[in-house]
Design a protein around this nucleic acid. Structure first.
Length: 608
RNA sequence: CGGGGUGUAGCGCAGCUUGGUUAGCGCGUCUGACUGGGGGUCAGAAGGUCGGAGGUUCGAAUCCUCUCACCCCGACCA
């Protein structure tokens, strides 16, 4: 018996679209959302039958979700490949020994999922893959001539988050694209900077193609310094991350990283009144004190005690005291940079034992305690203000504090007092890049993160190559991540209305939904099939709602799952001369009548 | 890890304080009829070891102990 197979060209520039019927796939829509869902993406993806929660931070991706995830992955692939990267796949199981080589078994700590096999060997479920790939590379690459190289994979990642939440936005198991670049140098052709810039551009294209409205922000820089790390943030009010942006210069950064522009300061200024003790029992917090004293938080000084760690030798300060205005938040990274030493928030018991009245500490404590360095934020370094602050005695605060009167000579000695930007930026602060401009704040969902790793992993794992001068050198690495499943959720956060999801065409599970009002009528069903075939031939993916449901149910579900174009076939539309054509983005109501012959082209015109 | 809370049908919930027929309600599901362009109406039906274990009691969804799972707030977070 011979069998004939349809011949399809191996090389084709038009992909044939898929045609699926609602009754032949699984789309379990529900009227109500699970009680614990709060964010639009969580509620709508669940209600529309895209995802189902299996455990804390663990989800099924149902057929519709998987189709969209596949589309996002494909966009990522195309742009990564175009940027010269090569896809591969690494195991999810990472032998714990590999993580020990770089110390990340400890660094990751409880965030690491581990499994023990029958022989008692321990492996981690990969949270990221620097070690596995670096190990592969050190066995395969021995010459600088084999560099640069950029390898990536799209794979499920595991992180035992303390608190998974927000549906797909913070899971314990999630899909991520992670890429790693390897270069001999930082500068020059083939160097890390070139690789990094290529990834930056690729990410820009990827998220634009996904139809996302996003902001690229500077993030905490890696070991190389400068603007060595960027986060790609989808602009959404429900985002977990706060970002700040200068409307004039285009500068944008996350809260941890954001610099603040020049702010005038001076410790000089006449005292406005005497220093006065006030009894404030059980009020270590700003909020309570403000209420008791009848003042604003901006009139208080907050003093946060950090402990210097590492090589504290000689007369190096042991305690770093950060002073900010009462309505500001201390930024630990900035305090570290200003102090020039590694620091950690002081343990309350230790600090109390050392003599700090934690909760009631003031700048004056440097008069009585040795080994202290005061780093004062410019907004707190104001001599003309009668400050309220702690009394360095439990249950007491002071009013009328004046810097130059109440602090001795140490105030002008840089060994004891420094003035520097040590607080988190916030809306309204001066821009660090444009004189006179003010920062604005918005919220974002981090969908991509690129950063320059340098030689951290290659050195730890002994990945070196011989260069031109036959010198052995550690390879310079970059690391580039995209949260694929998080991007799916971000699309929904960004694009939805009260009725449901509104998919950007590029990531929609199907491009066209054909709603059959009466699937029993053969001519209607045939027409749907014929239109679907024509659209499919043009590369369009079509879902046919062939359920025997009431019109209301079908329309509500159509709005909910958010396919970009809805074609409605029914007696009314045919009598009116064709099928009803509606764009989901333009609302949830009736569309226009389009003649049957014109429908495929009409769809193509509106999909681009 | 600290604080708060919830586990009862596929989903959303009531019942628990004060133990006592056969554990209810809405949505969904199934059957039939009427309907037929925005979650329709009527009639009927199926579906539960009340998270689990132990205890108190003549009797436990309800009280007690332990345990597991999950959620919210906070701290933490390439």
């Amino acid at each position: 018996m011979t069998r004939t197979t349809e011949k399809r060209p191996v090389l084709t520039n038009v992909r044939r679209g898929d045609v699926q019927r609602w009754t032949r796939t699984l789309i379990p829509t529900t009227r109500e959302a699970p009680a614990d869902a709060e964010l639009p993406s969580h509620i709508l993806l669940t209600r529309a039958g895209f995802i189902r929660r299996v455990g804390a931070g663990i989800y099924d991706y149902l057929p519709l979700a998987w189709r969209s995830l596949t589309r996002i992955s494909q966009i990522v692939r195309e742009e990564m490949n175009a940027a010269g990267a090569s896809e591969m796949l690494m195991p999810a199981l990472t032998p714990i020994e590999l993580l020990r080589e770089t110390g990340r078994d400890v660094e990751y700590g409880d965030l690491l999922f581990t499994v023990t096999d029958r022989h008692g060997r321990v492996a981690a479920l990969g949270p990221t893959h620097e070690e596995i790939l670096t190990e592969l590379m050190r066995g395969s690459i021995t010459s600088y001539k084999q560099l640069p190289l950029n390898l990536y994979q799209i794979q499920t990642k595991f992180r035992d988050e303390f608190r998974p939440r927000a549906g797909l936005l913070r899971c314990r198991e999630f899909i991520m694209k992670d890429a790693y670049s390897f270069s001999l140098d930082i500068e020059g052709p083939g160097g890390l900077n070139e690789q990094y810039d290529a990834m930056y551009r690729a990410y820009d294209k990827i998220f634009a193609r996904c139809g996302l409205d996003f902001t690229v922000v500077e993030a905490q820089s890696g070991p190389i310094g400068g603007s060595a790390s960027h986060e790609f943030m989808v602009n959404a009010p429900s985002g977990e991350d706060r970002i700040l942006r200068c409307p004039e210069s285009g500068y944008a950064a996350n809260v941890e990283k954001c610099e603040i522009g020049e702010r005038p300061w001076s410790f000089q200024g006449e005292p406005a009144g005497a220093l006065e003790n006030v009894h404030t029992p059980n009020m270590p917090g700003i909020a309570a004190v403000v209420g008791a004293l009848g003042i604003m938080p901006a009139q208080m000084l907050k003093t946060v005690v950090f402990e210097a760690i590492g090589n504290a030798e000689g007369d190096a300060p042991q305690w770093i005291l950060a002073v900010v205005r009462g309505d500001h938040d201390v930024n630990e990274g900035k305090v570290r940079d200003a102090a020039g030493v590694s620091i950690v928030l002081a343990d309350e018991k230790e600090a109390k034992a050392a003599g700090f009245a934690i909760g009631y500490v003031s700048p004056r404590v440097i008069e009585s305690m040795a080994g202290c360095l005061l780093v004062v934020d410019p907004d707190a370094a104001q001599g003309g203000v009668a400050w309220a602050t702690g009394a360095d005695e439990f249950s007491y605060h002071v009013k009328g504090f004046n810097w130059s009167r109440d602090l001795g000579q140490k105030l002008t000695d840089p060994r004891y007092v420094k003035v520097a930007d040590v607080r988190n930026a916030r809306a309204g602060d001066p821009s660090p890049r444009a004189r006179g401009a003010r920062l604005v704040e918005q919220r974002g969902i981090e969908v991509g993160h690129i950063f320059k790793l340098g030689t951290k992993y290659s050195e730890a794992m002994g990945f070196t190559v011989l260069d031109k001068d036959q010198k052995r050198r550690a390879v310079t690495m970059g690391c580039y991540g995209i949260g694929i499943s998080r991007t799916l959720a971000a699309c929904v956060e960004m694009s939805h209305d009260d009725a449901g999801i509104i998919w950007p065409a590029a990531v929609a599970p199907y491009h066209v939904l054909i709603t059959l009002m009466k699937p029993d009528i053969a001519e209607h069903a045939e027409l749907a099939g014929r239109l679907a075939d024509e659209l499919s031939a043009a590369g369009v993916d079509v879902l046919i709602d062939d359920r025997k449901e009431r019109p209301g149910v079908k329309f509500k579900d159509a709005d909910l799952i958010g396919i970009p174009i809805r074609l409605t076939i029914g007696e009314k539309s045919l009598q009116a001369g064709g099928v009803e054509f509606a764009i989901r983005r333009e609302g949830t109501r009736k569309g226009e009548i389009v003649a049957v012959e014109a429908v495929p082209q009409h769809c193509l015109d509106r999909l681009t």
